[in-house]
Simulated scan of single mutants.
Amino acid sequence: MKKRILISGGGIAGMTAARLLFNQGHEVTVIDKARKDVAIQCYLRITDDLASKHARVPQLLKETFRDYKADVQHLIDSFLKSGLMFADKMGMVHAPALTNGKLVLLGDAGYCPTALSGMGASLSIYGAKALAHFMKKSPDDLAGAIQRYDSLMQPISESFGTMREIMPNHLYRTTKSN
Rank of each mutant, 00 (worst) to 15 (best):
L103I: 07
D67I: 03
S52H: 15
A128G: 13
D141R: 02
P168H: 09
L131R: 05
A55Q: 15
P96M: 04
Q24C: 01
A95Y: 06
L80I: 01
I156D: 05
F22A: 13
T114M: 09
M167G: 00
G127N: 07
S52R: 15
I5S: 05
H133R: 12
D49A: 02
K136C: 12
D140M: 01
H133K: 14
Y111M: 14
R35P: 00
G144S: 10
Y111E: 06
A95P: 06
I76T: 00
L60Y: 13
E27D: 08
E165M: 09
C42L: 14
D77A: 15
S157L: 04
E63K: 15
Q41W: 11
S8H: 03
S177Y: 13
H170G: 12
Y111F: 14
I40C: 00
V28D: 02
T64E: 10
M167H: 05
Q41S: 13
S78R: 14
I5N: 06
G144R: 02
S138A: 12
I125Y: 11
I31A: 12
A145H: 00
T114R: 01
D140V: 04
A145I: 00
I166G: 06
Y149L: 09
L21S: 02
A121F: 06
A51G: 10
Q41K: 14
H74K: 15
R56C: 03
A121D: 01
T114F: 04
Q41E: 14
L6T: 12
E165G: 12
L6D: 09
D141H: 03
L131F: 08
E63H: 15
V104F: 05
T114C: 08
G10V: 02
G91W: 05
S82K: 13
H54M: 08
K33M: 07
A51C: 08
D71Q: 05
S52G: 14
N100K: 08
P139N: 08
V93R: 07
I76G: 00
G144W: 06
F86T: 00
R4L: 05
R56W: 04
S159D: 05
L44G: 01
K36T: 02
P155W: 07
P96G: 06
L105W: 01
I146R: 03
A55L: 12
L152V: 12
G11R: 06
Y149W: 05
Y126E: 09
R148C: 10
S151C: 08
Q59Y: 10
I5D: 03
